[in-house]
Design a protein around this nucleic acid. Structure first.
Lengths: 211, 211
DNA sequence: TAGATTGTTAATCGATTAACAATC
DNA sequence: TAGATTGTTAATCGATTAACAATC
């Protein structure tokens, strides 16, 4: 398209705006200025205005932004006006935690399948969904819409399963395995590397008193 | 100190270097050049050399970097040469997943306490640790070393519990709650906002075919 | 209208990449 | 020594902040 490419720095900030706007809405606020939002979020008002203006003018001079409208627009930009069917690969602790977490469904992310190779786990029900054997994966993807695959597999297995799924047409991966997936272009990957997050925390602990 | 401040862009990349170097070491590689690492990691060789040089010369002209030495140095920078005592606040699905995940203990992050308010959960054992009632938290922190508090509480509770813990001297927080903690300076916070991660993924799905 | 606040341009700052001399 | 590759400076690129005219 002719739309200018939005920088990933901006995209990374959008969900946080969305969260703050949702809160403001819950609290009955119906308008907010960039300056007020700036104070709440601890970012500059200038950045807020720049960010929003990447997508067109959501505000009004002398008034600010309408909370509900702005939240709606950002939601649309983030694709939250759609539903997504999610399958979870790996019914371990983390896979189960994701399946059981109701918050995602509320935002339109519906878990429709859970897979594992472990005989013990296959057949169990998690959040009302039966855990299927990995051998059923191919057929499942052929017969059902799968928008997102959440990978909570051991790092050794994750890249090959992701590759297989990508070949079957799944084009978005939420990757919790401690590895890079190295998938072809045209596939969306969002990594959640908990071990790396924890290392950044320990770095900060060590350097906390070194200013 | 007199050390120049390392930019957070660099720090964010260190754990990934550490992961790749650990893999290389497992595969028996004992040296690597910035160019070779560049190809594996899909970042520029220039960036790799710049990043490492923030901490001093780990390499050798004409040779490259010794994998084991470099991994060790980065590990030290990240604070992985120490042990950390972790308590988990909230024994829900995610709290249990974190407690049960053995990978953290292997890297020196030891879960030493789990807390919840739910009568059903208090007394249960998770990964050999008894879930304690939140009322015991204060005494526990007074009697035990607590380096990190992992917050897997509802967003409504997280900020107040974090504030209380910070006042008791806990100075690092691994925050999984969908909220900002707004703690005073001198406290390290690492956020893992899964809902935001998922929104970035849906943004990418929507925009996948818009180039 | 006067006051407020956006949208947008220009200035600054910081991070990434390129280039190459130093040196193993 | 010749070849390779780092350490480091300089050039480029991009993101953030400041400033202010437009306008509600």
């Amino acid at each position: 398209m002719s739309e200018k490419k939005i920088s990933s720095a901006v995209i990374k900030r959008l969900p946080r705006y969305y969260r703050y706007l949702s809160e403001l809405l819950e609290n009955g606020m119906d308008r907010i200025s960039s300056q007020e939002l700036s104070r709440k979020m601890h970012v500059t008002a200038s950045q807020i205005r720049q960010d929003f203006n990447n997508f067109g003018g959501f505000g009004q001079q002398g008034y600010g932004y309408n909370v509900e409208v702005l939240r709606g627009e950002i939601g649309k930009i983030l694709g939250l006006d759609q539903k997504y069917h999610v399958i979870i690969l790996g019914a371990g602790n983390l896979g189960r935690a994701l399946a059981n977490y109701g918050g995602f469904a509320k935002r339109g992310f519906i878990v429709s399948g859970i897979f594992d190779i472990d005989r013990e786990k296959v057949g169990q029900k998690i959040s009302n969904i039966e855990v299927l054997d990995m051998s059923k994966l191919k057929d499942f993807v052929a017969d059902n819409t799968v928008d997102i695959a959440a990978l909570t597999l051991p790092k050794g297995k994750a890249p090959e399963v992701a590759k297989e799924l990508a070949e079957l047409g799944v084009c978005a991966f939420w990757n919790f395995a401690a590895t890079d997936l190295n998938l072809p272009e045209g596939v969306a990957v969002e990594n959640v590397h908990l071990a790396e997050s924890l290392m950044r925390l320990s770095y900060n602990i060590v350097n906390l008193h070194k200013d």
